[in-house]
C-alpha cells in the first residue's frame, strides 16, 4: 500500500467541503458554536495496525443535541477482526463484508464534520485514527478538538470534588445522565453529546465558556493542579 502523503490535496467533494468550510472562531461563546460529536468503534487501540470499523456523528447546534440528524456508518476492514474486539462491540468480520472500505465509507462523516468543532470522549483515540483516515483524503483534522473526559475532570476540580470517573458510562452516570447503548458508535456518541451539554452548561456557572476555553481544558487542569 502506498503511503499517503500529508501534502496530498483534497480531491473528493466531501474533502473539499471540509477543507473549504471554516469552523467557529475560538472566541465564540460555547452555545453559539456548531459541534459534531464523533465516536468510533475500532478493531483495536493501535493506530498503526488497527482499523476503524464503525463511526457515528451527532450534531449539536445552539446548545441542543440534534438527535434526529445523526450519522452512523460501517467500514470494511482490510484484515479479519481480532476476537477480543468482537467481544467488546459485537461486530463480526462477516457483518462488515458488504460495507464500503474506509476511504469511501468515511466521506459522509467528513461531510458531517465540515464547519463543526469536533467533540469526542478521550481525544487521543479519535485524533490518531481520524487523523490517519483524514490524511488519506488529503485532509488535516481541524483544531480545536474538545474532550469530554478532560472537561469532566475540569468540572470536578472546579467544584472542588474528587476526580471524576474517566470512563464514558461512569462519568455520564455520575452526572445523572442516561447511558445509551455502550460500545455502539451511535449510542456512545449520543451519551458523549449529552455529556458535553451537561459539562459545558455546568462549567459556565463559573466563567463564561467559549470554544477556546473548553478546548483548553487540559491546560486549565494543569494550572489548577499546579
Amino acid at each position: 500500500m502506498r503511503r499517503p502523503s500529508l501534502l496530498r490535496t483534497p480531491t473528493s467533494p466531501a474533502a473539499k467541503l471540509y477543507a473549504g468550510t471554516p469552523v467557529e472562531a475560538v472566541k465564540t461563546p460555547w452555545r453559539k458554536a456548531h459541534y459534531c460529536v464523533v465516536d468510533l468503534e475500532l478493531s483495536g487501540l493501535d493506530p498503526r495496525n488497527d482499523e476503524i470499523i464503525s463511526f457515528a456523528a451527532v450534531p449539536i447546534d445552539a446548545g441542543r443535541v440534534l438527535a434526529g440528524s445523526t450519522l452512523y456508518g460501517l467500514c470494511r476492514p482490510t484484515r479479519p477482526l481480532p476476537e477480543r474486539s468482537i467481544l467488546i462491540h459485537g461486530i463480526r468480520t462477516v457483518d462488515l463484508a458488504e460495507a464500503p472500505p474506509l476511504d469511501e465509507a468515511i466521506r459522509p462523516l467528513i461531510t458531517a464534520m465540515a464547519g463543526r468543532v469536533l467533540v469526542v470522549h478521550v481525544a487521543w483515540v479519535e485524533r490518531s485514527f481520524l487523523g490517519r483516515a483524514f490524511a488519506r483524503q488529503g485532509l488535516r483534522l481541524r483544531e480545536p478538538v474538545l474532550d469530554t473526559c478532560e472537561l469532566g475532570q475540569l468540572l470536578a476540580l472546579t467544584r472542588q470534588q474528587p476526580p471524576a470517573p474517566r470512563a464514558l458510562d461512569e462519568l455520564a452516570r455520575s452526572l445523572n445522565l442516561p447511558v445509551h447503548q455502550q460500545h455502539h458508535a451511535l449510542g456512545d456518541a449520543l451519551t458523549t453529546a449529552q455529556l458535553f451539554l451537561a459539562l459545558a452548561t455546568n462549567l459556565e456557572e463559573y466563567i463564561p465558556e467559549t470554544v477556546q476555553s473548553l478546548a483548553r481544558a487540559s491546560q486549565r487542569l494543569s494550572s489548577y493542579r499546579g
Binding site: A67, L197, T201
Partner: peptide, 11 residues
C-alpha cells in the same frame, strides 16, 4: 418524532 427530536440540558 425520532427524526425531529432535540436533546436539551437544563441546570
Amino acid at each position: 418524532l425520532g427524526d425531529v427530536v432535540d436533546v436539551e440540558y437544563h441546570r
